[in-house]
Computed example of a mutant assay.
Amino acid sequence: MKASVLITGALGFVGRHLFRELTDAGFEVWASDLESLCEKPGPPFDMQRVRACDITRIDNVLEILKETHPGAIVHLAAQSSASKSFKHPRETFVTNSLGSLNLFEAARESCPDCSVLAVGSADAYGRQEGNAALDEATPFAPVSPYALSKAAQDLMGIQYWLGYGMKVFRTRSFNHTGPGQTTTFALPSFAFQIASAEAGLCEPVIEVGNLDVVRDFLDVRDVVRAYRLILEKGNPGDAYNVCSGRPVVLKTLLDILMSHARVKITVKESPGRMRPADIPFLLGDNSKLRTCTGWEPRYQIEETLWELLEYWRTETGESSPSDSKKREER
């Protein structure tokens, strides 16, 4: 058995996939999240290894660390919606920045030798001149309160590495999606609206925001494998872009999803889905991650989108045996 790992925010979208990834790799994994989520965590979690924790309360964090004695921590707990952060900037900063400070301080006190993987966001890069792929030396220019909170977390990671010698690894994670992602985000929102229309639960209309933005997407399963490899092979103190290195226009991804729709879909632009400020082009350079860890993406975006749509068809009761057979053949 490898060293134990504690995942904060483990019951969220990425956390569930990471739990499987680390467990399958032989790690002893502890999961923590808000108490309301821990009552019925569901698969793949073992209730014996699930603990309630409010990351904004340092006493909660200290208690969890002293109980679990982790050799490594993956810090996922966050308010992860850039759109929501414009409406709730203070809540976002308290959860993401103060929460990260609480984690670093608690780890420094109770397990100073453990590794900490602070999962950040490429949104911190913000708007940059030109359309070049961004490497880890790119300065931060956060546009949203969410991006600001993640930039602050990233800088804390540097300080705790330089100032206290803690083994902190940082990621700048670009967009990722896959089965289980909530409709707070664009692609699962599109998939949910298509599945709902197919099931007759709503009109065959997809409400969208800005479809002209260019993004860099990965499958969540490639992302969590990158997190594991950074823990195993990364250099403490370093930051790593977790990205595909391939630009794609959001409208192209919507078109792929719509090509699988069983009903004719109309696209409608919704002012309520527009952000007050946005990043028109965001593309990452993943060469450092690949060189340092040997990581390579395994999933094609078309496959990921198909599985995302199938997930929401199942959730809305629209999936059929023929769909399951088709998925197994892919």
Rank of each mutant, 00 (worst) to 15 (best):
V248Q: 06
D24R: 12
V94A: 14
L201C: 09
T266N: 08
R90F: 15
L308D: 00
G120Y: 05
K326A: 05
V242W: 10
T316L: 11
A72Y: 03
H17K: 11
L134Q: 10
R275N: 02
E203G: 10
A3F: 04
A82C: 13
G71V: 10
R16S: 14
V263N: 06
L98W: 01
K87Y: 15
R16C: 09
G120Q: 03
G165M: 13
E35Q: 13
R90M: 15
G126P: 09
I265V: 08
K167I: 01
A152H: 12
E63W: 06
K251I: 06
P321K: 03
V94Q: 07
A152P: 08
T293E: 10
S144H: 01
R262I: 05
M1C: 07
R170A: 05
A199R: 00
S4N: 10
L253Y: 05
P271V: 09
F13R: 00
S80I: 02
T314G: 13
P321W: 11
P204C: 10
Y164L: 08
R275Q: 14
L11I: 00
V249Y: 10
D285N: 15
G234Q: 09
S196R: 01
M156T: 01
L187Y: 09
G12W: 02
T316K: 03
L65F: 10
L231P: 02
S85E: 05
D54S: 08
I256E: 06
D59P: 03
P70D: 12
A191G: 01
A133C: 14
V205T: 15
F86P: 07
P280V: 04
Q128Y: 11
R221S: 13
L309Q: 12
L37I: 11
V205W: 06
I64M: 06
G178K: 10
E109K: 13
E91W: 01
R330C: 06
S100N: 07
T56F: 08
I55G: 00
T314M: 12
P297C: 14
E129K: 06
G99I: 00
S173E: 08
D278S: 05
D222P: 01
E35L: 13
A191Y: 08
G237F: 02
E109M: 13
F86N: 07
H17E: 14
S110W: 09
P271W: 09
F45D: 07
S144T: 07
E315Y: 14
R215N: 03
W295T: 03
V119Y: 10
R275F: 02
